[in-house]
Amino acid sequence: MADNIINVHEVHKTFVSEDKQSLWDRFRGRTHEARRVEVLKGVNLQVTQSETVVILGSSGSGKSTLLRCINKLETIDSGRIYVHGHLVGYREQNGELVAERASITAKKRTDVGMVFQHFNLFLNKTALGNVMAPLRDVKKMSAADARTKAVHHLEMVGLGDKLDNYPTKLSGGQKQRVAIARALAMEPAVMLFDEPTSALDPELVGEVLAVIKRIAEEGTTMVIVTHEMQFAREIATRIVVMDQGLIVEEGPPEIIFTNPQHDKTRALLSRSQTSPN
């Protein structure tokens, strides 16, 4: 257990959609029913050093939510998530989860890099500015050191010639590579990828996957949520299949892809183009 980088234990999460109660309904004394959707129903997952875990599942299965809970972009209702043995965003008090100070959460989050579906580059900064900003603002590096490091990481993702481009002057694939460089430059212990290629034109998917694959080969610990089955099979050290808020099957890709046990896994594999061989 000691070398677990991420340890997710019995995590439950419910989204409550706050349907606006109309003034008229309130006037009439009609009670208001919030819609509740349980997205995580007791998830357990351990990720160890240098593993590449790929989470598969149809939309609504809870895979993105699980990822966002790991660095507390989403709160959890119950259960525990440890990163490097520490709770992120919470402390435990008499067996209950209590929100911790924002500055402590921020410090812990530097251990967890995240890449988003819609890139989320800072729109008012160049590619170089995007990678430099957290090095300066969070890591308190000098401008010269931050610049050197940022240039190095942008060159690693093949964007050494786009340093001064603003996001509007970059293709989707280039934007995502800047976002990857930005997260990697912070030297996190684990990288989370939330559908990194889902918003890209098909012809741009390859360049991003190639970069992710190279990072995995360098031994970076990663958790990837994706719909790219072929890529999942090539890159994963372990595949995790989620359905309706639960992990229904997990194992090495050669077994999951050739001998899936769960119906949901079979359905996912047959829907993709990958032949089970």
Partner: peptide
Amino acid sequence: AALSLGYT
């Protein structure tokens, strides 16, 4: 994005 990079 900023939060995930360790900004408060």
